[in-house]
Amino acid sequence: MKLDKIKDAILIWGIVSDDGLSILKNEKIVIVPETRPYLLGLLYNAPLLKKQKINFVYCTDNMLGFLFYKDKIKKTIIFYKKLTKKGIICISGSLYVALLSKLHNVAIKIMPQKNLKNIKFLDNSATTLAGKKFILKEDTKFFKSPKDELISYFLL
């Protein structure tokens, strides 16, 4: 798909819930980011949306900034793991998405994520992609571990 075909898109981040799906069904187009390192977008969200016949387009996480720059996103939905007094706890990368949304005046909706039991990911860091290593053996300890991130209510 070319960028000029995208308008009024809904950006999703995290594990889409059943309630989330009901909202997405009514939308023109959904942006499904890759969601590294876990590839949640590819392994879970994309097949789910395809099964539900929801119109979506896939992208890598680093393309989101440009989508905001080009005014392609009308709303962001972040699916969180946990609510706390200070904010929501979400998977790695959520602060990136929340801040970019806020900085571009795009409204953020928060919803609890689907609770997937025994979910196993192919990747747990940037050292691998789809289970394959792209760095030399001697360098495998030099990475930053992805951590759950707190998004404060002030940002939402």
Partner: peptide
């Protein structure tokens, strides 16, 4: 040279 690898979406967290 000391270097760490990260996913593209981790930058905000590391800056914070």
């Amino acid at each position: 040279i000391k270097a760490y690898l990260l996913c593209d979406n981790q930058v905000a967290y590391l800056m914070q």
